[in-house]
Amino acid sequence: QSVRANAPWCPSNLEFIRRINGLDSIADVKNILFSASYLVMGLGDVYLGAPVATPIDPRHRLVTTKYNPARTWTAENSVGIGGSYLCVYGMEGPGGYQFVGRTLQMWNRYRQTKEFKQPWLLNFFDQIRFYEVSADELQQIRQDFPQGRYPIKIEEGHFSLSEYQEFIATNQDSIAAFTAQREQAFEEELTRWHADGQFNYVQEDVIDDNEEAELPEDAIRVDSSVSGSVWQTQVKVGQTVKAGDVLLILESMKMEINITANTAGKVTHLLKADGARVQAGQTLVVLQTI
């Protein structure tokens, strides 16, 4: 609900990545993704052992912007690029990286296997390589891998800083050409955003007719505990609720936050519609005691 249909990265994240990096085709994006060796620089970027990694070869470093506003839902183990970093989402939840695919699990909460000596799959300075499979193949892999029935290819290796510096020096001309092409395409994309008003995009509130309604003196106000946006309304006007029942779910800081009834009562007003922005302390729902 938070993803705007006219955003520059819609309807295709891959096309957006192609355009903002100055590549000729989506096939070029895929070729880079499947040729790159991603060096794991951190873990837990978006929970549960999620790696944040960057390609060792600078000619494989695709650059993107993030979603604005962020998505309210991302599938577990989606693979995305944000800035110059690649991340595999360790669990489902909100997110903003541009999608390039989906892969197998980064975290195994249920059992130890040959690959999972601990709950997380990867460690600092591991290198990741991807290869393409069909949707049906991935579904089967995702069923088998946490059970220890899908062996992934793991090789011991080393990273030599001196060898890497020599590699950079040897390929400096092609690296510079790729970087210049990417930077030019990025600037051209931002110029288009300035021209069509996307650069300074600010999410507009969804206006609700009840927002300015006069409330009775005995009204019980349920306020927002944080600033964010309404992701999903769980109740209807006239519905009876118990203390602790979830009334709304907010999205804030890449988290889903339940807004619950502080007492039993009947819902008389819903002051914010789905998609509306809210501020901490703002009244969202009004109850009447019964």
Rank of each mutant, 00 (worst) to 15 (best):
W9F: 06
I32Y: 01
Q127A: 09
Q112R: 14
W231Q: 14
A185F: 02
L248Q: 12
G281F: 03
G275A: 08
E212D: 15
H269C: 00
N13S: 02
L39A: 05
A53N: 02
A213S: 15
E188L: 15
N6S: 01
T65C: 00
Q198S: 15
Q105P: 02
V40Y: 04
T72W: 01
H60E: 01
L161Q: 11
L121W: 05
F159P: 08
N171G: 09
A75M: 10
T191Q: 08
N258Y: 03
A70T: 14
V40K: 04
Q143T: 07
G80Q: 05
F125S: 07
R19V: 06
G80A: 13
E76H: 05
I56H: 03
V230N: 02
R59H: 02
T289C: 05
S37E: 10
G95A: 06
Q1S: 11
N200W: 08
V222G: 07
E76I: 10
D208C: 14
S25T: 15
V29I: 10
Q234R: 14
E15Y: 01
Q282D: 01
V88Y: 01
A195I: 11
M255P: 03
L121F: 06
F99E: 03
L48Q: 09
N123R: 07
D205W: 04
N262E: 09
G83T: 03
L250F: 03
P69Y: 10
T65K: 00
A261S: 09
Q239R: 05
F125E: 06
P51Q: 10
Q239S: 08
Y201P: 11
E115V: 07
R19N: 02
F130N: 05
R71I: 13
F167L: 13
I257V: 11
V100Y: 04
L161F: 10
F130C: 04
V40I: 11
G95S: 12
E189Q: 14
T72K: 06
E187K: 13
A50F: 03
A276F: 04
W9L: 00
L43A: 02
F130A: 08
L284R: 02
V285T: 06
L48R: 09
G101M: 09
S229A: 11
F186M: 15
E156F: 11
V202C: 10
A50N: 09
L248M: 14
Q181F: 02
G96C: 08
V226Q: 08
G244C: 11
D126L: 08
E155N: 10
P216C: 11
T65S: 00
N68A: 13
E187Q: 14
H269I: 01
Q288G: 01
E137R: 13
